[in-house]
Nucleic acid binder design. Structure first.
Lengths: 223, 223
DNA sequence: CCTACCGATCGGTAGG
DNA sequence: CCTACCGATCGGTAGG
């Protein structure tokens, strides 16, 4: 059921300018461009990745990229939006279900890490530097999606506090702690290494849950 | 005592090619170049920051940058090394002192966050993307310093487990969790905002400490 | 000879 | 979707 996050997600893009029915080949190429671009943007950074690099990796000519995308910056935007919408769609039924907050959080964490390890490029984008390259209007639209995602974590945290599961913390701070922590894992964890993705989910969730369950705050005077 | 991390650190660079005694002005300019470059590399990314941008911000001519630095890539390297050595020097006496591991960890966390908020640019560099621009030999040297830093966290974690303070976890994993989490804070926390750096240190340390103190692991079956 | 740069321009490549 | 290009700007270096 959550395996939707593992497949190379088929175009759920509403903004596609190409009639999909008649040109499935175009859709395939468009997706290929986005896949290779996502990975290269993530590995070398947006500015250092040329459209020639991307085109070569996608086996097309540089000019052809402009047939599918208006500009380099909108290619970045569409990649980020696609990733955000995919996780958002997978998480929405979870937060809406009747379920202990602790269970909901585990599902959000699992989805996040699973998507991250399955789509390194798509997941690793969206940082402050990359976002700054998006045209103003598109950036705002993307940041809106990102806020929706953070809001899900805030909501689950709030529920958990109400249910007496988590210590009464600042939910905004808590969400940023959790998301920052989860994103940081993407930077060094190799899913094909000695620690599997499944094991990482268990360890990361344990770390997060413990951080939330503190009831009597440790005294922390800065010497 | 820990305020050394707050001042614009004076050249502790052993690799400086300029006789410092006679030409303090040179040293000042060199430091200014490194400061502005660090911030711009961090904000816009290494590739997107031109030497002209850096020179303009430092009030000199672009060609003058080449008097102080052999290349753009070595400028990046020297910035990263300076940051690493500064924290390393501040932390070494702490880990060597006789002290409960919990106290040592608080000091390491405090230094990390304090340095981070005082020198956004210096601290935010060193990610996989930026590192890839360093010449091979220099990159290895820098990664060595970074490993030394991580080793301090591993050592303190190991001590804490031995002292029965922390749950017996994989210290490598734990260090990466902690450092990834701390670094992520740098990306969204504004020290001049509603949450002060001091408050952030308290909150972040509480979160970390709780994550380490779990004795009976929560059961985490993935539905 | 060295220091601390400047004005101009090098060969290549960027996005479009 | 490719060939053939453009305006501009890139990192780096020349002589003085």
């Amino acid at each position: 059921m959550r395996d939707v996050l593992k497949n190379s997600f088929k175009s759920s893009l509403t903004e596609s300018r190409i009639p999909l029915r008649r040109h499935e080949r175009s859709e395939l190429i468009r997706n290929r461009i986005m896949s290779v671009a996502a990975l290269m943007f993530y590995q070398k950074g947006y500015a250092a990745t040329s459209l020639d690099d991307i085109a070569k990796e996608a086996n097309i000519n540089k000019a052809a990229v402009y047939y599918y995308f208006k500009a380099k910056s909108t290619l970045l935007y569409e990649i980020c939006v696609k990733a955000a919408k995919t996780i958002l769609d997978a998480d929405r039924p979870i937060v809406d279900r009747h379920m202990p907050a602790e269970q909901k959080l585990l599902n959000l964490v699992t989805n996040h890490l699973q998507f991250q390890s399955a789509h390194k490029g798509y997941a690793g984008l969206g940082g402050t530097v990359e976002i700054s390259y998006m045209p103003n209007i598109l950036r705002k639209r993307y940041v809106g999606l990102r806020d929706d995602y953070e809001a899900m974590f805030r909501r689950v945290l709030k529920e958990g506090i109400g249910q007496g599961m988590f210590a009464p913390i600042n939910v905004r701070l808590g969400s940023l702690f959790i998301l920052g922590f989860l994103n940081s894992i993407n930077e060094w964890h190799d899913p094909d290494g000695e620690i599997t993705s499944e094991e990482m989910i268990v360890q990361a969730y344990r770390f997060i849950l413990a951080g939330l369950e503190v009831k009597k705050p440790t005294n922390t005077k800065t010497a």
